[in-house]
Design a binder for these strands. Structure first.
Lengths: 214, 214
DNA sequence: AATATACATACCGTCGTTCGGTATTATAAG
DNA sequence: CTTATAATACCGAACGACGGTATGTATATT
């Protein structure tokens, strides 16, 4: 056995195993040997497909990021105001059960400093672009108060991903509920009332699932 | 030469050298050998005072955090409303020239994932406690709109330290001005109007100094 | 048949950490 | 004020783990 007909399967196995181990023991605490051992393959296999350990982490990050391309279809719908489109993204993210299950399994990888910072970079640079268009639509159709769209996008993404769902402070259910409630106050105040009773309810349910897993 | 009479000087030298090297080359890229060489001492010296490389980083983090104890005197002043006390902290931070110079020299250490995450932990757990009292005062005396004080503290610290002064996106002057202006917009909107013309002006000057250094 | 690909294996260099040793200072009993 | 004892500050050689590489080999592609 020296050459596989379907190397993509090998790549996927490497990524899956790495993600699991990184999440279980942390990125730095996971050695290439650990991955190799768990994988039942050799170092050569890994270093043939990835040029470094860090590149595996980057690949995992991109994998996550590609999820976000899921917004695509919402953008085009013309039965929704800009605000409603943003709200729909919240609903989608909060009710996507399979994604939630995945999140629960890999929750600890977000605690890794390198992964955390990489993700934060995405949420400050590329991800805002994905929702800026909808924000501007909302400002044009009057559903969102006029303001700097890029700033608004960055601030919201930041608060949702690193304050509410903070890998740093953890996920106690009461804490999460307080935060979502405050986020509602906050977004209402700045003229982006995305969080209504329905979204808040979905968030509560999502948080309960999350908290149970930690 | 085997035993020094004043080991604190050695500790200080280790910390100073480490901070400089970490900031110049990054934490991971700086080896203990590098520090030892720059220090003109031995590995034994370092490992006598610190039990690991990471503990040096932690010590540097705590050093920074202790700066924040500077708030102390503002808290006690009874000639200021709660809001004015918070504003005074902004003014103090923005006009402290020696601190600004230090910040410029060590700006790159904030780009290190480990240091970044450690600092963020402080700003989500301990640092909010330091300003919560003043926020609550402000809510009592009517200078700040009533809301969850802890949430408000966390959100403001987070946005100021990691969105406006983001080690991730960098420090272009125009960007910073846009952000400060937006920060003013939403702090006004949520009922914490800390940023007036004076603070905004100070921020601009601070940013120009910062941008020149990068 | 020739070449590129997909792995395996043995090995290397670096770096954080350890550990035995030594010189100096602090402590305290005589 | 000695002098014995202990604790501290530091040295530097060596270790061990780990990320990465070089070389080899079998299979798939062309």
């Amino acid at each position: 056995m020296a050459r596989n007909k379907y190397p993509e399967q090998t790549i996927k196995k490497i990524l899956d195993t790495s993600l699991r181990l990184f999440s279980e023991k942390g990125y730095e605490q996971t050695t290439i040997q650990d991955i190799v051992h768990d994988l039942g393959m050799s170092k050569g296999a890994i270093y043939h497909h990835f040029k470094s350990k860090e590149e595996i982490l980057l690949a995992l990050g991109n994998h996550y990021y590609n999820d976000h391309a899921m917004f695509g279809n919402i953008k085009e719908r013309d039965d929704l105001t800009g605000l409603e489109k943003i709200r729909e993204i919240f609903v989608l993210q909060l009710s996507n059960q399979s994604k939630a299950d995945m999140d629960v399994l890999t929750i600890n990888i977000w605690k890794d400093p390198k992964f955390f910072m990489m993700d934060m970079k995405n949420n400050l640079t590329e991800n805002p672009l994905a929702i800026m268009g909808m924000l501007e639509e909302g400002m044009a159709d009057g559903s969102i108060r006029k303001q700097d769209a890029k700033c608004l996008a960055q601030v919201v993404l930041m608060l949702v991903n690193y304050w509410v769902l903070s890998p740093i402070t953890g996920f106690s259910p009461e804490d999460l509920k307080t935060k979502i409630h405050y986020l509602r106050y906050f977004t209402d105040a700045i003229g982006l009332p995305v969080i209504n009773d329905h979204v808040e309810q979905l968030a509560f349910e999502y948080f309960d699932r999350l908290a149970k897993a930690v």
